[in-house]
Amino acid sequence: MTATLNPSALNPLAERPRAKPLSTRIKTIAERMSWQIGIGVILGFLYLPIALLIVFSFNTSRSLSWPMSGLTLDWYRKLAENTQLIDAFGNSVYVAISATLLTLIIGVPAALALDRIEFPGKGLFRKLMLLPIALPGIITGISMLSLFRILGLNLSLETVIIGHATALLAVVVTQVYARLQRLPASLQEASSDLGASELQTFFLVTLPNIRTTVIGAGMLAFTLSFDEIPVTFFLTGRDNTLPMYIWSTLRRGLTPEINAIGSLIVAISVVLIFISVLLLKDKKNSVR
């Protein structure tokens, strides 16, 4: 008799999870489903516009209305013939590469200085340099416009490069600085104990260790510069960058041609994202 006694009679806690199986299971399923629907809505909010952008770049009609009138590659063909657009694209590449190199040349030493050197006014220096992260681009734009006016410099792609480099310095400095902080000081000490000069230590020890971060920061700076409008808006002369060209076309009206440019930019961005993910993976494997 006692052997067949339900153990739950003795230990009511043991059976409790199975006590209300159906309602609990429905509750769990309902909860999981509501989470999934919620996340799905957020993802839809993020990606539906991008999907529409791409889909409408193939629309035969000039108007961007649903349902679509038909499929065509005409808008892409038009892009290939649009010399203004191609010039703007070339200008953007030139600006983005120059601005990226400049930010790296200025930003890496700046991060080193913040990490290793004590000097008067360091706090102010750091605050000033990191300001553009939170500061609206328009302020960088108009303040540099004022400077160039006083210096008597004509606006050109070069003034845009200086503006971009200034606005993006903060991005490079924060990333490289964060990496330097995680770098053990013993590495540098060992190098100098072994008789390496500071320059040798930097190029042979420090730089290889922060390489992926520098490349990653550079790629981010490149993308941001390629895409930049608020600073460019005030500092560009006769030559347009790609976003400024798109901006000026937008004022004339919306056409699927802009969608075609947009889709190409999305495609390039996807490639860049994949490269940066691969770089991050590489970093995980190589650091200890």
Binding site: F56, S65, W66, D227, I229, P243, W247, L250, N259
Partner: peptide, 23 residues
């Protein structure tokens, strides 16, 4: 990922969606 896609384009998309002849 959308941070890597042009900021101008992301605003433009909503213009095409919300406009009177929009999606």
């Amino acid at each position: 990922a959308p941070l890597w896609v042009s900021y101008l384009l992301r605003a433009y998309m909503w213009k095409t969606i919300l406009g009177t002849i929009g999606v």
